[in-house]
């Protein structure tokens, strides 16, 4: 499932691509991250993201592009099982942990901490 070296190299490379877009275009970070998520989704749909995960492990699952892939994977897996309605019911299946964790941690950190400026 990937080694520390491939995780470092592939993860670093995806971030490098992001940095190139930050510095060479006038796009905001939100635009660049959206682009990476959409790219991850399209690559996932083409069956190209899973091999990357096999090769690089966390180097492919930690960058935000993996979120796009996971959403697509969920949709396609559920559609294969229950037909086209599965596209709607399956989208959040694999990303539920991430989104739930974000909301829970966001809420509780806001309870306990203040912004420092």
């Amino acid at each position: 499932m990937g080694s520390y070296l491939t995780a470092f190299l592939v993860g670093g490379l995806i971030c490098l691509i992001g940095q190139l877009l930050f510095d060479l275009t006038s796009w905001t970070p939100a635009h660049v991250l959206v682009l990476l998520v959409v790219a991850g989704g399209i690559l996932g749909g083409l069956g190209l993201y899973e091999p990357l995960i096999k090769f690089a492990g966390a180097g492919a699952t930690i960058p935000i592009s993996s979120f796009g892939n996971a959403l697509v994977k969920g949709a396609m897996a559920e559609a294969a099982q229950s037909g086209p309605i599965g596209i709607l019911t399956g989208i959040f299946e694999l990303t539920s942990a991430g989104i739930t964790a974000s909301i829970i941690f966001g809420f509780f950190f806001a309870l306990l901490f203040d912004p420092k400026g």
Partner: peptide, 10 residues
């Protein structure tokens, strides 16, 4: 970006 991103993924 490469080094920090790679380190976080590692």
């Amino acid at each position: 970006a490469f080094v920090v991103g790679g380190a976080i993924c590692t």
